[in-house]
């Protein structure tokens, strides 16, 4: 983005979409949206639309990829070719999505009780249908619900958000415009049962105080996301 044309993003403490600095966008989560997958979830997070599906535990192919001590977790995050406002993209994995997929694998290797299923694989597939900033935390939020929907044993939900610095101030859950001009980005996800950090990435320039405050803001927001995840599962049990 051309920083010279940067619009003012915070006016009288309000953001471009009317939110306060600590507000999440509207988040809707529905579990069990697909028929074939063992578990699935749809997340609408601001203008992000993301669908997640899970298969497994199941046999590993090829066999030499299996682990005799635990289940192998495969995570695939992809943006659809039509997902962004900008030009048609090639679709499929690129360097960014390969890195995010690797982060997703790590998050769910921690959360899933993989040692209960040696020599098997758990495949998590997340497709970003429409993107509007903060897709990685929204994608992992959806994947976490899909795993619970599939009945795969987990230690809790992964919930969280990204906190960024906009016009010199920390703001929760950046949308696309804020993200483009953002001065920092700190996506953090927590295990709902023990508040351990499962995802932590950061870029930008932050002082120690700003850094710590970013993590704290993510934690507060993660509680709200987690409540919505729980609701989406309980709704299916009524």
């Amino acid at each position: 983005m051309n920083k010279a044309n940067k619009p003012e993003l915070i006016i009288d403490g309000r953001r471009t979409d009317g939110r306060n600095l600590e507000d999440l966008r509207s988040v809707k989560i529905e579990s069990g949206v697909l028929d074939n997958a063992d578990g699935s979830a749809m997340v609408e997070w601001g203008n992000n639309k993301i669908i997640a599906g899970v298969y497994g535990p199941r046999e590993v192919f090829p066999k030499h990829f299996s682990d005799p001590y635990k289940a192998v977790v495969n995570f695939r995050y992809v943006m659809c070719s039509f997902s962004s406002l900008e030009e048609h993209s090639r679709g499929g994995p690129n360097r960014r999505s390969i890195e995010i997929s690797k982060m997703g694998k790590h998050v769910f290797e921690n959360l899933i009780l993989t040692e209960q299923f040696p020599n098997t694989a758990i495949d998590i597939d997340v497709e970003v249908l429409q993107s509007d900033g903060g897709t990685r935390v929204a994608a992992f939020t959806a994947a976490s619900v899909a795993l619970v929907d599939a009945g795969i044993p987990v230690k809790g939900f992964a919930g969280g958000v990204s906190v960024g610095k906009v016009d010199g101030r920390l703001a929760v859950d950046l949308n696309k415009i804020e993200d483009n001009y953002g001065e920092s980005d700190v996506p953090v996800m927590f295990n709902s049962s023990n508040s351990e950090i499962l995802l932590l990435q950061m870029d930008g320039l932050l002082t120690r105080e700003e850094y710590e405050r970013s993590i704290d803001l993510c934690y507060e927001a993660s509680k709200k996301v987690n409540a919505l995840q729980v609701d989406s599962i309980k709704k299916k049990m009524e």
Partner: peptide
């Protein structure tokens, strides 16, 4: 200034550890 962070691998960290 802190300018980058990456947590990698399946380990989790507490905020204090970070």
């Amino acid at each position: 200034f802190i300018c980058s962070t990456q947590k990698s691998g399946s380990a989790s960290f507490s905020k204090k550890e970070v």
